Amino acid sequence: MLIKKKIPLPTSLIVTQSNQLVEARYNLPLAEQRLILTMISRIQPDDEDFKPYCISVGELAEFLGVDKASAYRECKKTTENLLKRVVNIDETDGLLQIGWVSSAKYVDGSGEVNLSFDPLLKPYLLKLKGNFTSSKLEMLLSFKSQYTIRIYTLLKQYEKLKEREFDLEFLREVLGLRPDQYQLYADFKRFILVAVQKELTQKSDLYFNFEEIKGGRRVTAIRLLILTHEAVIMNPADKDNGEGALPPLDGLLSLIPEQHRSKKTVLSSVAAYEKKQGYDYVKRNILYSNGKADKSYAGFLVNALKEDWGHDWELEQQAAPAVKKKMTVWERQGFKSEKDYDAFMYRKQMESYQTARK
Protein backbone atom coordinates (compact mmCIF):
# COMPACT_ATOMS: atom_id res chain seq x y z
CA MET A 1 0.00 0.00 0.00
CA LEU A 2 1.47 3.33 -1.02
CA ILE A 3 1.78 6.24 1.36
CA LYS A 4 -1.38 8.31 1.03
CA LYS A 5 -0.39 11.39 3.01
CA LYS A 6 2.06 13.32 0.87
CA ILE A 7 4.75 15.55 2.31
CA PRO A 8 3.96 19.12 1.22
CA LEU A 9 6.36 20.42 -1.42
CA PRO A 10 8.45 23.37 -0.24
CA THR A 11 7.45 26.60 -1.96
CA SER A 12 10.39 28.87 -1.14
CA LEU A 13 13.42 26.73 -1.99
CA ILE A 14 15.53 27.46 -5.05
CA VAL A 15 17.81 25.06 -6.94
CA THR A 16 20.81 26.99 -8.29
CA GLN A 17 23.56 25.29 -10.26
CA SER A 18 26.25 26.41 -12.68
CA ASN A 19 25.46 26.15 -16.36
CA GLN A 20 28.28 23.62 -16.74
CA LEU A 21 26.44 21.36 -14.32
CA VAL A 22 23.11 21.99 -16.09
CA GLU A 23 24.75 20.72 -19.31
CA ALA A 24 26.71 17.91 -17.67
CA ARG A 25 26.17 14.33 -18.83
CA TYR A 26 24.63 11.96 -16.31
CA ASN A 27 21.78 9.53 -15.77
CA LEU A 28 19.90 9.80 -12.49
CA PRO A 29 16.64 7.89 -11.98
CA LEU A 30 13.75 10.09 -10.89
CA ALA A 31 13.98 9.44 -7.14
CA GLU A 32 17.73 10.03 -7.04
CA GLN A 33 17.41 13.17 -9.12
CA ARG A 34 14.77 14.53 -6.73
CA LEU A 35 17.09 13.77 -3.83
CA ILE A 36 20.02 15.63 -5.40
CA LEU A 37 17.82 18.63 -6.22
CA THR A 38 16.53 18.72 -2.65
CA MET A 39 20.10 18.73 -1.37
CA ILE A 40 21.07 21.56 -3.73
CA SER A 41 18.09 23.61 -2.58
CA ARG A 42 19.49 23.55 1.00
CA ILE A 43 22.62 25.45 -0.12
CA GLN A 44 22.58 29.15 0.78
CA PRO A 45 24.09 31.85 -1.49
CA ASP A 46 26.69 32.83 1.12
CA ASP A 47 27.78 29.27 2.06
CA GLU A 48 31.57 28.91 1.93
CA ASP A 49 31.56 25.13 2.06
CA PHE A 50 29.26 22.13 1.79
CA LYS A 51 27.52 20.83 4.88
CA PRO A 52 25.95 17.45 5.60
CA TYR A 53 22.42 17.85 4.19
CA CYS A 54 19.80 16.13 6.32
CA ILE A 55 16.96 14.34 4.50
CA SER A 56 14.23 12.48 6.36
CA VAL A 57 13.56 8.85 5.47
CA GLY A 58 9.89 9.84 5.11
CA GLU A 59 10.82 12.41 2.46
CA LEU A 60 12.94 9.83 0.64
CA ALA A 61 10.09 7.32 0.81
CA GLU A 62 7.81 9.93 -0.76
CA PHE A 63 10.24 10.33 -3.66
CA LEU A 64 10.31 6.54 -4.10
CA GLY A 65 6.58 5.99 -3.66
CA VAL A 66 7.07 3.14 -1.18
CA ASP A 67 5.09 2.21 1.92
CA LYS A 68 6.29 2.80 5.46
CA ALA A 69 7.11 -0.84 6.12
CA SER A 70 9.78 -0.94 3.41
CA ALA A 71 10.83 2.74 3.53
CA TYR A 72 14.08 2.28 5.43
CA ARG A 73 15.23 -0.67 3.31
CA GLU A 74 14.39 1.03 0.00
CA CYS A 75 15.98 4.31 1.05
CA LYS A 76 19.25 2.57 1.87
CA LYS A 77 19.22 1.01 -1.59
CA THR A 78 18.66 4.44 -3.14
CA THR A 79 21.50 6.15 -1.32
CA GLU A 80 23.81 3.19 -1.99
CA ASN A 81 23.07 3.48 -5.71
CA LEU A 82 23.53 7.24 -5.59
CA LEU A 83 27.04 6.79 -4.22
CA LYS A 84 27.89 5.00 -7.48
CA ARG A 85 26.44 7.58 -9.89
CA VAL A 86 28.91 9.53 -12.01
CA VAL A 87 28.46 12.98 -13.51
CA ASN A 88 30.62 14.00 -16.49
CA ILE A 89 31.58 17.69 -16.59
CA ASP A 90 33.56 19.28 -19.41
CA GLU A 91 36.22 21.52 -17.87
CA THR A 92 38.62 23.80 -19.74
CA ASP A 93 41.53 21.40 -19.30
CA GLY A 94 39.65 18.14 -19.81
CA LEU A 95 36.80 15.91 -18.66
CA LEU A 96 35.96 15.63 -14.96
CA GLN A 97 34.22 12.42 -13.90
CA ILE A 98 32.94 12.67 -10.36
CA GLY A 99 30.40 11.15 -7.98
CA TRP A 100 27.50 13.25 -6.75
CA VAL A 101 27.84 12.36 -3.07
CA SER A 102 30.78 11.21 -1.00
CA SER A 103 28.86 9.72 1.94
CA ALA A 104 25.44 8.86 3.34
CA LYS A 105 25.17 8.58 7.13
CA TYR A 106 22.02 7.11 8.70
CA VAL A 107 21.52 8.28 12.29
CA ASP A 108 19.97 5.54 14.46
CA GLY A 109 16.60 6.46 15.91
CA SER A 110 16.34 9.77 14.06
CA GLY A 111 14.67 8.62 10.85
CA GLU A 112 17.14 10.80 8.93
CA VAL A 113 20.13 10.47 6.64
CA ASN A 114 22.95 13.01 6.28
CA LEU A 115 24.29 13.27 2.74
CA SER A 116 27.48 15.04 1.67
CA PHE A 117 28.34 16.32 -1.80
CA ASP A 118 31.70 15.46 -3.29
CA PRO A 119 34.02 18.44 -2.56
CA LEU A 120 35.00 18.73 -6.24
CA LEU A 121 31.46 19.93 -6.98
CA LYS A 122 32.06 23.18 -5.07
CA PRO A 123 32.78 25.35 -8.16
CA TYR A 124 29.44 24.25 -9.64
CA LEU A 125 27.21 24.78 -6.59
CA LEU A 126 28.82 27.28 -4.18
CA LYS A 127 29.12 31.10 -4.33
CA LEU A 128 28.08 31.32 -7.98
CA LYS A 129 28.54 34.83 -9.38
CA GLY A 130 27.46 34.29 -12.98
CA ASN A 131 26.66 31.66 -15.61
CA PHE A 132 24.19 29.82 -13.40
CA THR A 133 20.55 28.75 -13.63
CA SER A 134 17.95 28.83 -10.86
CA SER A 135 14.68 26.91 -10.69
CA LYS A 136 12.03 26.45 -8.00
CA LEU A 137 12.34 23.13 -6.20
CA GLU A 138 8.56 22.85 -6.01
CA MET A 139 8.34 22.91 -9.81
CA LEU A 140 11.11 20.34 -10.29
CA LEU A 141 9.68 17.91 -7.75
CA SER A 142 6.28 18.01 -9.47
CA PHE A 143 7.58 16.33 -12.62
CA LYS A 144 7.07 12.60 -13.05
CA SER A 145 9.92 11.99 -15.50
CA GLN A 146 13.67 12.37 -15.04
CA TYR A 147 13.84 13.66 -18.63
CA THR A 148 11.29 16.38 -17.93
CA ILE A 149 13.47 17.66 -15.10
CA ARG A 150 16.60 17.76 -17.27
CA ILE A 151 14.94 19.39 -20.29
CA TYR A 152 13.19 21.92 -18.05
CA THR A 153 16.51 23.12 -16.61
CA LEU A 154 18.00 23.30 -20.11
CA LEU A 155 15.05 25.48 -21.16
CA LYS A 156 15.32 27.58 -18.01
CA GLN A 157 18.95 28.27 -18.84
CA TYR A 158 17.91 29.86 -22.15
CA GLU A 159 14.55 31.26 -20.99
CA LYS A 160 15.34 34.84 -21.98
CA LEU A 161 16.67 33.81 -25.41
CA LYS A 162 13.40 32.00 -26.27
CA GLU A 163 15.20 29.46 -28.44
CA ARG A 164 17.76 26.71 -28.04
CA GLU A 165 19.27 24.35 -30.60
CA PHE A 166 20.70 20.93 -29.76
CA ASP A 167 22.68 18.47 -31.80
CA LEU A 168 20.63 15.29 -31.38
CA GLU A 169 23.58 13.21 -30.17
CA PHE A 170 24.59 15.88 -27.64
CA LEU A 171 21.04 16.01 -26.25
CA ARG A 172 20.98 12.21 -25.92
CA GLU A 173 24.26 12.33 -23.99
CA VAL A 174 23.07 15.10 -21.66
CA LEU A 175 19.92 13.10 -20.89
CA GLY A 176 22.06 10.08 -20.06
CA LEU A 177 20.57 7.79 -22.70
CA ARG A 178 22.43 4.58 -23.50
CA PRO A 179 23.31 3.95 -27.16
CA ASP A 180 20.66 1.22 -27.31
CA GLN A 181 17.86 3.42 -25.93
CA TYR A 182 15.47 5.02 -28.41
CA GLN A 183 17.87 4.46 -31.29
CA LEU A 184 15.22 5.37 -33.85
CA TYR A 185 14.47 9.08 -33.96
CA ALA A 186 10.74 8.30 -34.13
CA ASP A 187 11.01 6.57 -30.74
CA PHE A 188 13.11 9.39 -29.24
CA LYS A 189 10.56 11.89 -30.48
CA ARG A 190 7.59 9.97 -29.11
CA PHE A 191 8.93 8.82 -25.74
CA ILE A 192 11.20 11.76 -24.89
CA LEU A 193 10.39 14.97 -26.78
CA VAL A 194 6.62 14.71 -27.07
CA ALA A 195 6.20 13.11 -23.63
CA VAL A 196 8.24 15.88 -21.97
CA GLN A 197 6.45 18.53 -24.04
CA LYS A 198 3.11 17.23 -22.81
CA GLU A 199 4.11 17.21 -19.13
CA LEU A 200 5.59 20.71 -19.31
CA THR A 201 2.50 22.02 -21.06
CA GLN A 202 0.33 20.68 -18.25
CA LYS A 203 2.45 21.66 -15.24
CA SER A 204 5.22 24.11 -15.98
CA ASP A 205 5.80 27.84 -16.32
CA LEU A 206 7.86 27.00 -19.43
CA TYR A 207 6.85 24.99 -22.48
CA PHE A 208 8.37 24.39 -25.86
CA ASN A 209 7.63 23.75 -29.48
CA PHE A 210 10.31 22.10 -31.57
CA GLU A 211 11.64 22.12 -35.11
CA GLU A 212 13.52 19.21 -36.68
CA ILE A 213 16.78 20.04 -38.45
CA LYS A 214 17.88 17.51 -41.04
CA GLY A 215 21.27 16.58 -42.40
CA GLY A 216 20.35 14.86 -45.63
CA ARG A 217 17.36 12.65 -44.86
CA ARG A 218 18.07 12.21 -41.14
CA VAL A 219 17.11 14.46 -38.25
CA THR A 220 20.44 15.55 -36.77
CA ALA A 221 19.43 18.46 -34.54
CA ILE A 222 16.45 19.87 -32.66
CA ARG A 223 15.53 23.52 -32.23
CA LEU A 224 13.44 24.16 -29.13
CA LEU A 225 11.29 27.30 -29.16
CA ILE A 226 10.85 28.26 -25.52
CA LEU A 227 7.38 29.49 -24.56
CA THR A 228 5.85 30.84 -21.38
CA HIS A 229 2.49 29.79 -20.00
CA GLU A 230 0.74 32.93 -21.22
CA ALA A 231 2.18 32.65 -24.75
CA VAL A 232 1.24 29.05 -25.56
CA ILE A 233 -1.46 28.88 -28.22
CA MET A 234 -2.63 25.78 -30.01
CA ASN A 235 -2.83 26.31 -33.73
CA PRO A 236 -5.35 24.13 -35.62
CA ALA A 237 -2.55 22.58 -37.68
CA ASP A 238 -0.79 21.42 -34.50
CA LYS A 239 -3.72 19.69 -32.78
CA ASP A 240 -3.05 16.28 -34.24
CA ASN A 241 0.50 16.04 -32.91
CA GLY A 242 -0.12 17.93 -29.68
CA GLU A 243 2.68 20.44 -30.26
CA GLY A 244 2.29 24.00 -28.99
CA ALA A 245 3.09 26.90 -31.30
CA LEU A 246 3.31 30.68 -31.13
CA PRO A 247 1.60 32.98 -33.63
CA PRO A 248 4.21 34.00 -36.26
CA LEU A 249 4.59 37.60 -35.07
CA ASP A 250 4.97 36.63 -31.39
CA GLY A 251 7.47 33.95 -32.35
CA LEU A 252 9.59 36.49 -34.23
CA LEU A 253 9.46 39.06 -31.45
CA SER A 254 10.61 36.41 -28.97
CA LEU A 255 13.89 36.14 -30.94
CA ILE A 256 14.69 39.83 -30.44
CA PRO A 257 16.80 40.82 -27.40
CA GLU A 258 14.44 41.80 -24.59
CA GLN A 259 15.68 45.38 -24.25
CA HIS A 260 14.75 46.13 -27.89
CA ARG A 261 11.52 44.13 -28.12
CA SER A 262 9.06 46.92 -27.24
CA LYS A 263 10.53 49.65 -29.46
CA LYS A 264 8.02 51.04 -31.94
CA THR A 265 10.37 50.90 -34.94
CA VAL A 266 11.15 47.27 -34.19
CA LEU A 267 7.52 46.26 -33.72
CA SER A 268 6.26 48.03 -36.84
CA SER A 269 9.11 46.81 -39.06
CA VAL A 270 8.84 43.18 -37.97
CA ALA A 271 5.04 43.21 -38.43
CA ALA A 272 5.24 44.86 -41.88
CA TYR A 273 7.95 42.58 -43.27
CA GLU A 274 6.38 39.43 -41.82
CA LYS A 275 3.18 40.29 -43.69
CA LYS A 276 5.04 41.23 -46.86
CA GLN A 277 7.93 38.72 -47.01
CA GLY A 278 6.99 35.95 -44.59
CA TYR A 279 8.26 34.42 -41.36
CA ASP A 280 11.56 32.93 -42.58
CA TYR A 281 12.62 36.18 -44.27
CA VAL A 282 12.19 38.17 -41.05
CA LYS A 283 13.68 35.46 -38.85
CA ARG A 284 16.99 35.29 -40.70
CA ASN A 285 17.37 39.06 -40.58
CA ILE A 286 16.62 39.16 -36.85
CA LEU A 287 19.21 36.47 -36.16
CA TYR A 288 21.71 38.28 -38.40
CA SER A 289 21.09 41.54 -36.53
CA ASN A 290 21.46 39.84 -33.14
CA GLY A 291 25.03 38.94 -34.01
CA LYS A 292 26.07 41.94 -36.13
CA ALA A 293 24.34 45.03 -34.74
CA ASP A 294 26.77 47.30 -32.92
CA LYS A 295 25.26 50.55 -31.65
CA SER A 296 21.69 51.10 -32.87
CA TYR A 297 20.00 47.71 -32.89
CA ALA A 298 16.65 49.06 -34.11
CA GLY A 299 18.20 50.97 -37.01
CA PHE A 300 20.39 48.04 -37.96
CA LEU A 301 17.42 45.65 -37.96
CA VAL A 302 15.31 47.99 -40.11
CA ASN A 303 18.08 48.18 -42.72
CA ALA A 304 18.65 44.42 -42.57
CA LEU A 305 14.95 43.82 -43.25
CA LYS A 306 14.94 46.34 -46.07
CA GLU A 307 18.02 44.92 -47.83
CA ASP A 308 17.71 41.28 -46.69
CA TRP A 309 21.22 41.26 -45.24
CA GLY A 310 20.49 37.94 -43.58
CA HIS A 311 20.07 36.13 -46.93
CA ASP A 312 23.74 35.42 -47.67
CA TRP A 313 24.51 34.88 -43.98
CA GLU A 314 21.83 32.17 -43.80
CA LEU A 315 23.29 30.43 -46.86
CA GLU A 316 26.72 30.46 -45.24
CA GLN A 317 25.33 28.90 -42.06
CA GLN A 318 23.63 26.15 -44.03
CA ALA A 319 26.68 25.48 -46.21
CA ALA A 320 29.15 25.13 -43.34
CA PRO A 321 27.34 23.83 -40.26
CA ALA A 322 30.48 22.18 -38.90
CA VAL A 323 32.36 25.46 -38.60
CA LYS A 324 29.44 27.65 -37.64
CA LYS A 325 30.31 29.79 -34.63
CA LYS A 326 27.64 29.53 -32.00
CA MET A 327 26.55 32.92 -30.72
CA THR A 328 27.17 33.30 -27.01
CA VAL A 329 24.37 33.99 -24.57
CA TRP A 330 25.50 37.55 -23.93
CA GLU A 331 25.83 38.30 -27.66
CA ARG A 332 22.32 37.04 -28.32
CA GLN A 333 20.96 39.17 -25.48
CA GLY A 334 22.58 42.34 -26.84
CA PHE A 335 25.15 42.91 -24.07
CA LYS A 336 28.53 44.42 -24.91
CA SER A 337 30.54 41.88 -22.93
CA GLU A 338 30.19 38.65 -20.97
CA LYS A 339 31.08 40.59 -17.80
CA ASP A 340 28.08 42.92 -18.26
CA TYR A 341 25.80 39.94 -18.90
CA ASP A 342 27.06 38.05 -15.82
CA ALA A 343 26.52 41.10 -13.62
CA PHE A 344 22.99 41.57 -14.96
CA MET A 345 22.08 37.88 -14.51
CA TYR A 346 23.52 37.80 -11.00
CA ARG A 347 21.31 40.74 -9.96
CA LYS A 348 18.23 39.14 -11.53
CA GLN A 349 18.87 35.74 -9.94
CA MET A 350 19.42 37.27 -6.50
CA GLU A 351 16.19 39.26 -6.86
CA SER A 352 14.34 36.03 -7.73
CA TYR A 353 15.97 34.22 -4.84
CA GLN A 354 15.01 36.90 -2.30
CA THR A 355 11.45 37.08 -3.65
CA ALA A 356 11.02 33.31 -3.41
CA ARG A 357 12.20 33.26 0.21
CA LYS A 358 9.71 35.93 1.38
Rank of each mutant, 00 (worst) to 15 (best):
L255M: 14
P119H: 03
L115H: 01
S204T: 06
S135N: 13
W100T: 00
E32L: 06
D47I: 06
T228S: 15
D205F: 13
G299N: 10
K306I: 08
D47S: 11
M350T: 13
K156S: 02
R217F: 07
Y106I: 02
V87M: 05
Q17D: 06
R164K: 05
G251Y: 07
V282S: 00
Y346K: 13
E314V: 09
G215H: 07
E165S: 03
P248E: 07
I36P: 04
D308L: 11
L184T: 08
R172Y: 06
R34M: 11
R218W: 05
Y53S: 10
L193N: 03
K68H: 01
K160I: 10
R223M: 05
A69N: 11
F63P: 11
D250H: 07
L35P: 09
F63S: 04
A231N: 14
A320K: 14
L60Y: 13
K198L: 09
K326I: 06
I256A: 02
L206R: 13
T355V: 14
L2F: 00
E274C: 04
R85E: 01
P10Q: 05
T153E: 04
K160E: 15
Y182N: 12
S204W: 10
L82T: 00
V57G: 02
H311F: 11
I55L: 15
V113E: 03
D67T: 01
F166K: 01
Y53I: 15
L13R: 14
S110H: 03
Q277D: 07
D67L: 02
S116Q: 15
K68S: 00
N235V: 09
Y288N: 00
A24C: 09
S296Y: 02
D308A: 08
K189A: 12
K214D: 03
S103E: 13
Y185H: 12
S296E: 03
P179I: 08
L28V: 08
E316L: 08
P321Y: 04
Q277N: 14
K5G: 05
L13A: 07
L255T: 09
E307N: 15
R172T: 04
Q97V: 01
Q259K: 14
K326E: 08
